[in-house]
Amino acid sequence: MEISREQVLHIARLARLRLGEDEVAGFQKDLNSILGYVDKLRELDTTGVEPTTHAVPIDGVLREDVADQRLSPDAILGNAPQKQEGYFRVPKVVED
């Protein structure tokens, strides 16, 4: 399949990536080249084949419900680009 310019913009929006004018064409070309390559998977009939999510069978270990507080307030907020009174600060979430 061929990815259109509009699709590139739509994917970029879903992924929250702002693309420059010049980048859009480049990504379109790269994605189409890669998708052209991966299209070879269509050669394979995979009817009835179980998809693999985990290559190694794992017997899931669960946590006991015990609470602890490992991180200090400094550790929690220390890397925040902007903070205020213990909160992370961001541009307004809902626009009016």
Binding site: Q84, Y87, F88, R89, P91, K92, V93, V94
Partner: peptide, 13 residues
């Protein structure tokens, strides 16, 4: 997230 009245920011908890 809470919105600060009259300010262009939100605070995240």
């Amino acid at each position: 997230s809470s919105h600060l009245e009259g300010k262009p920011v939100s605070l995240v908890d």
